[in-house]
Amino acid sequence: MKFISIMLGGILIQNFVFMQYLGLCPFLGLSEQMDTALGMSGAVIFVMTFASTVAAAFEQFILVPLHLEYMRTIAYILVIAGFVQLVEIFLKKTVPSLYKALGIYLPLITTNCAVLGVALLNARQSYGVLWGTVNGLAGALGWSVAIIIFAGIRERWKFMNIPGTLKGFPLALVATSLMALSFQGFSRLFASVLK
């Protein structure tokens, strides 16, 4: 039950982009083409899930026993940056095809505040390693759903007669507003069943 609740929460009810304002820079910047959006989604799902695992393990086995919780921000950013580096090297050596597909997106992930964001949220809610990982996966899936939908919409704009001064970020933000409005219907979904 907790699994379903966290998954639905991350994807529909508390979508990272539409409800929690996380990962907006890459969401706005990399959504102009479907291929880019798909590639970035793959990379984010991979990194965010396992970065959550690593960060939660770091919290549980190093920070808490040593009473260093106040150093969480520094510790996490270093752990995550190191993890992304490792993933890059590991993929390059072992799964070159996957590296080819995701490689260029991996360095961009460091600018995605959702990765650090979900790790910090996990620690605040003391999710532990297992549920932290699940929450990371749910958040990453939610972010991916959002950027893929948005890329679908944005690809059509190329053919449309849009006033020049509105093109780019203003329009992208207004569109995000309409998408967030559409996702409001999911608020409190399953609230009566799950709690």
């Binding site: 939908i149 919409i153 690809e155 059509r156 559409s182 996702f183 409001q184 999911f186």
Partner: peptide, 19 residues
């Protein structure tokens, strides 16, 4: 869900899915 009626959001959600 949290609302008694979902037609509005059902259609809006599928509008997003249309592309």
């Amino acid at each position: 869900g949290g609302y008694p009626e979902g037609v509005t959001y059902g259609i809006l959600f599928m509008n997003l899915m249309t592309p």
